[in-house]
Simulated assay, not measured.
Amino acid sequence: MPNSTENRLEEGRPEPRARAVIVLAAGASRRFGPEDKLLAHLGDSPLANAAFTLAAGTEAAQRLAIVASDEVADLAARAGLATVRLAAGGPQSASLKAGLHRLAPGIGEVLILLADMPWVARGDIDALLARGAPACARIGPARLPPALLPARWVPEILRVEADQGARSWLSRIPTDHCLALPENHLRDIDRPEDMPR
Rank of each mutant, 00 (worst) to 15 (best):
135 A>V: 04
88 A>M: 10
35 E>A: 14
78 R>A: 13
13 R>D: 00
141 P>Q: 10
42 L>D: 06
66 I>S: 03
63 R>D: 11
9 L>M: 15
128 L>A: 05
73 A>N: 03
39 L>C: 10
107 I>L: 01
45 S>E: 15
107 I>Y: 02
123 G>Q: 13
120 V>I: 15
139 I>M: 12
61 A>K: 12
17 R>G: 04
16 P>Y: 09
31 R>Q: 12
117 M>F: 07
40 A>G: 01
113 L>M: 06
38 L>H: 13
107 I>K: 01
116 D>P: 01
58 T>L: 12
86 L>I: 09
133 A>K: 03
16 P>F: 08
128 L>V: 05
28 A>W: 02
66 I>E: 06
87 A>T: 14
92 Q>H: 13
24 L>I: 12
58 T>M: 13
50 A>C: 12
140 G>V: 07
84 V>G: 08
80 G>K: 12
50 A>E: 14
85 R>Y: 01
70 D>N: 13
20 A>K: 10
110 V>N: 03
87 A>P: 11
113 L>Y: 05
28 A>G: 13
90 G>K: 14
83 T>V: 15
40 A>Y: 00
52 F>E: 05
42 L>Y: 10
28 A>V: 06
113 L>R: 02
67 V>L: 06
22 I>P: 06
40 A>V: 00
75 L>M: 05
47 L>H: 04
33 G>Q: 08
102 R>P: 00
81 L>C: 11
41 H>Q: 14
18 A>N: 14
8 R>M: 14
122 R>Y: 00
136 C>L: 07
46 P>G: 11
89 G>P: 02
14 P>M: 08
79 A>M: 01
106 G>H: 06
89 G>A: 06
51 A>H: 08
55 A>D: 12
24 L>G: 07
27 G>C: 10
41 H>V: 11
100 L>C: 11
27 G>D: 13
39 L>Q: 14
14 P>R: 10
28 A>C: 03
26 A>E: 10
60 A>E: 02
16 P>H: 09
120 V>E: 04
90 G>Y: 00
33 G>F: 09
131 R>D: 00
132 G>P: 04
86 L>R: 13
